[in-house]
């Protein structure tokens, strides 16, 4: 089965029977779901429930133990797939920002697209300035990461991922390492992205963001998808006892 037989073009990622084990610990247990273009999906759940591992499997930063992940119809778990080309389409934002410490902001943005011949140095610079202006950080283009606050770093990390013109953005707890007063500025950028129609999968502890911005929310617990529903429904009418007790603790 080389391509996804289901030719639903609006489906960008399809996960089938995804399982991930670390040594003998079962972190993801037979997960199947799919993500459509322009969809904003939040993934919530208790720590250690497999949220981050699930997200990191989607661009193969973790290698699934078994199962299939179709991106644009191609099973990226198959041998011989050029994963680097697929990763270009999937921007990722980390909890710890991971800006390149040896490069200034502009170099952080332009290094990969220029190296991978997505655009020329001038094009990359122009695009970089446009995007920096949008997140209000144009004046930081010559700064080094150590000169920036956490919120600034994360906004630039988002811009860095956008530079590659990704089809989908993966966010791995993007606000968890931020001081409380900086969470808002990052969420604002993400909210704007969502409004523009970017496809986003967001692992988060920000329940308000999940409820208000994402159209759909997955509740992941003990390696299972316990509930998968439109966000308002999931938060207003939780069904599984686990989700009910989780929401009681965090809300």
């Amino acid at each position: 089965m080389a391509a996804n037989p289901d030719s639903n073009i609006s489906e960008i990622i399809r996960v089938e029977h995804l399982t991930k084990k670390f040594e003998n610990l079962l972190v993801l247990d037979d997960i199947s779901t799919s993500f459509r273009t322009h969809e904003v999906v939040s993934v919530i759940g208790p720590s250690g429930g497999g949220k981050s591992t699930f997200l990191r499997c989607l661009n193969l930063m973790e290698t699934p133990t078994s199962g299939a992940i179709y991106v644009d119809g191609v099973d990226i778990c198959k041998k011989g797939v050029d994963i680097n080309r697929h990763r270009e389409k999937m921007g990722m934002v980390f909890q710890q920002f991971n800006l390149f410490n040896n490069m200034n902001v502009m170099k952080n943005l332009t290094a990969a697209p220029v190296k991978l011949k997505k655009m020329t140095a001038e094009e990359a610079e122009t695009k970089g300035i446009t995007l920096l202006r949008r997140v209000g950080l144009e004046d930081k283009r010559n700064s080094y990461p150590y000169e920036l606050s956490g919120g600034q770093k994360q906004r630039i990390a988002i811009v860095r991922a956008l530079m590659m013109n990704p089809e989908v953005m993966l966010f791995d707890e993007p606000t968890s390492a931020l001081d409380p007063e900086m969470i808002g500025e990052v969420l604002d950028v993400m909210r704007e992205l969502a409004e523009e129609g970017m496809t986003m999968i967001v692992v988060t502890h920000e329940m308000r963001f999940a409820r208000e911005v994402s159209s759909r929310t997955l509740f992941l617990s003990d390696g299972h998808i316990e509930e998968d529903k439109p966000s308002h429904e999931l938060f207003d009418h939780p069904e599984s006892p686990r989700l009910i007790s989780f929401l009681q603790k965090v809300l």
């Binding site: 680097n84 270009e88 990722m92 800006l99 390149f100 990969a112 991978l116 990390a157 860095r160 991922a161």
Partner: peptide, 12 residues
């Protein structure tokens, strides 16, 4: 995390 970020952008 530095290498992870590079790989996620599609760099080898």
């Amino acid at each position: 995390g530095q290498m992870e970020a590079a790989r996620c952008l599609g760099l080898s």
